[in-house]
Design a protein around this nucleic acid. Structure first.
Lengths: 212, 212, 212, 212
DNA sequence: CATGAATGAGTATTCATTCAT
DNA sequence: TATGAATGAATACTCATTCAT
């Protein structure tokens, strides 16, 4: 019986150590990448800021690419969960508005993470071309979310039946990205206040039925 | 007499040589920066690709910062000229549409330059913080252009009188930037076809008078 | 009473486990060192390839030096045993021929071990200078073996009485080493076919009595 | 005329600087590699020992591989020249003896270079597999030299007509390599004294005509 | 006995910049 | 004006070793 109890305990403890250092390092990575940029952020810095040695990041993630890949995957999951909970039970334009808000809210809830995400999306293009598929998938998921909301809205009769949902989904995502990019750490709060109602207005007016 | 004649001649020749090497190096810089990113592009590469030695860029511009600064200033001037000629004689929404088209057209006319511009705007934030004022000024000029067009349109009665021109100018510029960013070298033509009419439609419908 | 019985049993089991992991790790070490070289082989790899954790090699041997030292000692013993059994009952040139064959046969019987041995002999000079005495002793034992065979042959009248046995022992060992070094994993079979008869011929003709 | 004179002068001076640093760095590399081994020798050390900065070796040779490749090529040329001058005008066994002496003499003339050469031949197998073709070519040239000497000796009637020249060339080269390997910096002088006459004796007795 | 998390010193490589020509 | 040789600081990555479990 001792065996049965100690084995899992040991494993739980080792796993816990690993999990904790994992969390800390990803948090430190997001903090630093969002502030100094992907290139200027050192693996050693990340390890030290997380409270560990300079070598741990490489031991854990194998390489800088591995760390960024892991970080991106974690943030991807976080976005997925947040968006799902915010758009749950909503449909059409209502869901679209919630989805847009989720993007902004992410930046408010975990500003470090959001800043790092934007930076990685932009800098990784040159630094880690192998990461592009994951980045594209991330953006595509957002785009498809907006598109499906618009398609749903069309089905519900909230917008004109001839609306080019794909094009408008692009426009919406582009606007959100274009307005938040490179503006972390400064006047993001302003964007948070301005952008959602603006999009709502645009959505209501530009996409609504001619009669509306 | 020989002195008097040769000196100016020499000077003219020297100036011409300088001008030519200048043009070539900035062109090479735009080409490389747009493709590999600001950080991955080395001064030596730029010099060699321009057909000169690896050391010339530093001799000419003093430092990497100096080169990027010069390049940015040149592209700024180019944008200014293009926009002025395209919006010349137009007012209100008509001018706004032309201005938006100018942004896209720039990417079509000098794709290397446009790609480099986007890259610099994003990467310089971390690499050359001293460059930020110039970048901000560049973007601000675009934003003010759109804002003034909207204000003009409001004065002309083309849009609602309570329109938040500043906010919409931000939205428009953000959409343009967000949709073109990181998409150079691939499907930019698609953006060129889609974006301008989309913005036109949005402008027409979202900003128009309620009666329209 | 339970104590008295289980203790030895446990110990025997522990000893067996230790012995098995020992065998496996040395085997894995030989395999990897022979293939990738001493420097490129990591302790972690050895542990994992042996079917254990990455940390076991250090726990068992204390350090990389300790492992190599142990491995070398084991191979030394193996050589000693093999040579003894192959030269047993023989004398003079007959024994010399058998000894030379033993060197080659080792490479055929345990190719991984032979390759690792060669690699260690060469790389350890720089990596583990402290190991040099053991290496020198190993080579010296071979040299002395050949020398004694030659001295015996001289006593038996098989070779000229003025033969420099030390010098020729060096030559023979050198030839064997020089022809096998760095050729593991490739055309060693060719060497196995060629070298022994060649040495035999040389031994027979070069060292034989002038009259022969 | 000034042009005509200064241009070459400038070029000669720059080229001279380059040539000098080249010579110094290769010399320093040979010295260090022969003493500490290929792996333990640092590019920075090489640069500093040559009297330059730690970064110059990479700037000049691109990488550690590039440096070793260059060094090997230089030593290859040196060997070629030395062997050619020493065997010039000789034939058969006489040429073979001179060739064997050249190998040893090289170690006496440029002991650092010879030691580095041996080390590189052995260590590069694992560290720089891409270098293997050059190494093989180097060894093959020696082997072919000995073989051709033997073939010539056979033609001249100096040795038995059924002699396996390829096999014996292997044996001779193997013996030379096996007896010098890993013995640089210590008792190489002894080898220098012992080996050539030993090979001569072997050649004379083992390869000679039965009647001789 | 065995695992695996964490350390930290060492090294090849990059490249903006300086400087001799 | 232009070349290119030389500098040196910065950083990703490796891995033997320590230590907690």
């Amino acid at each position: 019986m001792t065996q049965v109890d100690t084995q899992p305990l040991r494993r739980r403890t080792q796993a816990a150590r690993r999990e904790q250092s994992d969390r800390r390092m990803l948090r430190a990575a997001a903090y630093l990448i969002g502030r100094r940029g992907l290139h200027a952020t050192t693996l050693a810095e990340i390890g030290v800021r997380a409270g560990y040695s300079s070598g741990l990041p490489v031991v854990r993630y194998g390489s800088k690419f591995g760390l960024v890949d892991t970080l991106l995957a974690a943030m991807d999951r976080w976005c997925e969960t947040t968006v799902a909970s915010m758009t749950g039970g909503r449909r059409g334009l209502d869901a679209l508005k919630a989805r847009a808000e989720a993007y902004i809210i992410g930046a408010r809830t975990i500003p470090d993470g959001a800043a790092a995400l934007q930076t990685i999306i932009v800098e990784a293009r040159y630094a880690f071309p192998e990461l592009q598929p994951r980045i594209d998938a991330f953006l595509e998921r957002w785009r498809l979310g907006f598109r499906d909301d618009l398609l749903d809205a069309r089905r519900l009769g909230e917008v004109r039946s001839d609306l080019d949902c794909d094009a408008y989904a692009n426009l919406i995502l582009g606007a959100i990205r274009g307005m938040t990019i490179g503006r972390f750490g400064e006047d993001l709060r302003e964007v948070q206040r301005e952008l959602p109602p603006l999009l709502c207005e645009m959505v209501r007016q530009a996409l609504a039925l001619p009669s509306a």
